[in-house]
Nucleic acid binder design. Sequence first.
DNA 1: GCAGTATAGTTAGACGACGAACCAATGTCA
DNA 2: TGACATTGGTTCGTCGTCTAACTATACTGC
Lengths: 154, 154
Amino acid sequence: MQRKHGSAISLVGRIHEAADRWLVGELKAAGMEGVVPSHGDILSLLFSRGEATMHELAAHAHRTKPTTTILVDKLEAMGLVRRERSGEDARATLVRLTPKGEALRPAFASISRRLLARAYAGLSSAEADALDAALERLLANFTPKPTTRKHKEK
Amino acid sequence: MQRKHGSAISLVGRIHEAADRWLVGELKAAGMEGVVPSHGDILSLLFSRGEATMHELAAHAHRTKPTTTILVDKLEAMGLVRRERSGEDARATLVRLTPKGEALRPAFASISRRLLARAYAGLSSAEADALDAALERLLANFTPKPTTRKHKEK
DNA sequence: GCAGTATAGTTAGACGACGAACCAATGTCA
DNA sequence: TGACATTGGTTCGTCGTCTAACTATACTGC
């Protein structure tokens, strides 16, 4: 009996951890010591949208609201973002980049680019596409709620 | 430039989390409330080897030694394993299954089997092989070079 | 208007994991 | 033989994350 396929889940866990470690190192090297991948997800939405509510940030980072509170607390303490009460809905908090946060945009873009380059290194374009498709499938296989939502963009 | 081909890292993180949640649920359903995937890695080595040192368990579970100490503490508190001082090397601790731990073997095998079935569901055998190969590649891409530990040149 | 419910966000407590520092036993070698 | 380095494990403090419970504001139907 040859070694059968079946290591995907274990590999996925290890890739996740290795990529996170790599990211933390790059962020630190770029002068963002203590910034962690989830902070990156927060910032990434702000870079593309300008402002966002805690709720939107949580959804984009795939983190819970309490976690998002803590993440934004830290970014605020680092002076990278600021909170602002929404005028339209007094319950909502709008988070926005400070100039200091905005200044990180290029470093972030560079790290993102290098992350992908490193991840897909050694794979042909076709292999990369097949990988993405297979991973989407795996995720769907483990996602409890079948949202039955069609992919609009693929 | 067509979009896409670049979500692998994000997907990997989400698959990892989703699979962990699924596993925790299955373990709980099998009467192992509070047992977590890393505990499963510990037990899995014991099922196949009979006994192991803390060091070996840590390596197999891809966890640090302090973490492994805590993991084994809990399994011991649950009565699933016991520690034993090694006769050959008084520094080493041998961990072994208790009868109660041994009794979990079939439930564990079932969960493992269903984990893989679920993960690879919807993929052909060729696709599954390609996925495994691509994931091995990704992991290698992020694994700090263990080979040349001398001066590195880029 | 107001009661009941839903939504935005925070606080509190728990847990898994890690790095640093530590102790104890073993190995090395002059 | 004895000093020093190495290895096996644990303790301590911290971090990121989660769930549950809480506050405050908004919405809805009568």
